[in-house]
Design a protein around this nucleic acid. Structure first.
Length: 153
DNA sequence: GCCAACGTTGGC
DNA sequence: GCCAACGTTGGC
C-alpha cells in the first residue's frame, strides 16, 4: 500500500465536489506532466490512500482523504479537440496521458493549512514543501500521511 | 495580479 | 544536444 498527495484547485474541483460525485468517484483527468503521469501509471495501485490537497486556495492545504478506485488507463480528455486538456500528441492507439479514478474517503474536520505543514518538523521532507515543487501527483511517506490525517482531525 | 521556479518546445 | 523563449503552476 502506497500513499499519495494530489492537488486540485477547489474553485475548479474541490473535495466537496468529489463527495457529491456519483459513487463519490471521479477520473483524475488533465494531468499533463510526465513525472506525475509516471507515478499514476507505474506506481498507483487500487486502494492506495491519497491526500486531497487544495492548491491556489485561501488558504491552500490538505482537505481530506481519498483512495485509488481504478488503476491507470488512458486519459480520454487528451483525445478531444474541444477539451481544455486536448493534446494531439496522444493518440487512441498509443495514448500519451493516463489517469486513475479516485474515490472520496473523508473530508478533514478542519483543513490542514500549508503553513502548518511547512512548520511541522515531521513533514519537512515532503515534496510538497520543497521549494518550487509543482508536481500535481506525488508520493507521500506513510508516517507523513498519518501525521496530516492526525492534524486534520 | 505578480512573479519565481521549473518543464517544454523548437531553432540551430 | 544546447539553450533561449515561452507557458504553467501556485504561493503570496
Amino acid at each position: 500500500m502506497k500513499y499519495w498527495l494530489v492537488k486540485a484547485e477547489p474553485n475548479c474541483f474541490s473535495i466537496d465536489d468529489l463527495a457529491k460525485e456519483k459513487k463519490q468517484t471521479t477520473h483524475w483527468d488533465g494531468v499533463r506532466n510526465y513525472q506525475a503521469r509516471n507515478f499514476m501509471r507505474d506506481e498507483m495501485n487500487l486502494g492506495d490512500k491519497v491526500i486531497f490537497y487544495h492548491s491556489n486556495a485561501e488558504p491552500p492545504g490538505a482537505a481530506g482523504v481519498c483512495e485509488v478506485a481504478k488503476e491507470a488507463y488512458p486519459d480520454f480528455t487528451a483525445f478531444d479537440p474541444e477539451d481544455q486538456h486536448y493534446d494531439p500528441k496522444s493518440k487512441k492507439d498509443s495514448p500519451c496521458w493516463m489517469m486513475v479514478d479516485i474515490k472520496f474517503v473523508k473530508k478533514f474536520s478542519r483543513l490542514v493549512p500549508l503553513d502548518e505543514i511547512k512548520s511541522n518538523k515531521k513533514l519537512q521532507k515532503m515534496r510538497l514543501v520543497q521549494p518550487g515543487n509543482r508536481l500535481s501527483v506525488m508520493p507521500v511517506e506513510k508516517d507523513e500521511f498519518e501525521e496530516i490525517v492526525k492534524m486534520g482531525r
